[in-house]
Amino acid sequence: MIAPRVFFLISIFLVSLFGCDKLSEFKEYFSSKPKQTATSPAVPAPLPAAPASDAALPDNVLAKVGNWTITIEAFNDRLGKLKEAVPEYDTNSLEAKQLVLEELIRQQLLVADAEQAGVAQQKDIVDAIAEFRRMLLVREVAMKLTKGVEATEAEAQEYYDKNKEVLAEPAEWHLREIVANTEVGAKEILIEVLKGSDFAQLAKERSIGKTAANGGDMGFLAEPAPDKSQEQMVPDFMLGEIRGLDAGGISKVFKGPDGFYVIKVEEKKGGKTREFSDVKDDIVTGLTLLKQQQAILNHLTQLSQQMDVKINEKLLGDK
Rank of each mutant, 00 (worst) to 15 (best):
K319R: 08
N312V: 05
H299P: 00
S229M: 11
A112E: 15
R274C: 03
P4A: 00
E131D: 11
D278P: 03
D54E: 14
K210W: 06
V6F: 03
P34G: 15
K228R: 14
I2A: 00
K162T: 08
V284K: 13
K314R: 12
S31R: 06
P87M: 08
G259T: 05
S229W: 04
S304R: 08
S40K: 11
E131H: 07
R78F: 12
G259N: 05
T146G: 03
Q232Y: 03
E183L: 05
F260R: 02
D127L: 10
P235E: 11
F13Q: 14
L190S: 04
A213V: 07
E241Q: 15
Q98T: 10
A96E: 09
K280N: 05
S93L: 08
V265N: 05
P46R: 03
F18C: 14
K204D: 06
L287G: 03
D278M: 02
L315I: 10
S304K: 02
Q107N: 04
E267V: 13
E231G: 04
V126H: 06
P58I: 08
L316R: 11
D113A: 09
L47S: 00
I178Q: 05
A49M: 11
A295V: 06
S197F: 00
S11W: 01
I283S: 05
W68Q: 11
D318V: 03
E158K: 15
L62C: 04
T288E: 03
K22N: 15
Q98C: 07
G240E: 11
S93K: 02
K269R: 14
Y261F: 12
E153F: 10
T71I: 09
I12G: 11
F254N: 04
D318H: 01
D282V: 07
P4E: 01
H299Y: 15
L245Q: 06
R5D: 13
P34L: 12
G118C: 00
V65I: 14
Q107M: 11
G118M: 05
E165K: 14
S93A: 00
F75I: 05
T182Q: 12
E241C: 05
K272H: 09
D236M: 05
L175I: 15
S229A: 07
L47M: 12
Q98E: 09
Q108L: 03
M238P: 10
G248V: 09
G286I: 05
A55V: 13
K269E: 00
N214R: 13
I283A: 04
K35N: 08
G259Q: 02
M218K: 14
G286R: 12
S31K: 06
D198Y: 01
I72C: 07
T301W: 04
R243G: 08
N298S: 07
V119I: 07
L145W: 02
L221A: 06
E115F: 04
E140G: 01
G196S: 06
L101E: 13
L99W: 14
G219K: 11
L175W: 06
A225V: 03
A222V: 02
G249K: 10
R133K: 09
V138N: 12
T301V: 01
V193Q: 03
K195G: 14
A203Q: 09
V86G: 02
R206H: 14
R78M: 15
K81M: 13
V6E: 04
R274V: 09
F276P: 15
A130E: 03
G259L: 10
E73G: 09
A55T: 08
E169Y: 07
A213N: 10
A74L: 05
H174A: 05
M233C: 09
A74M: 10
E177L: 11
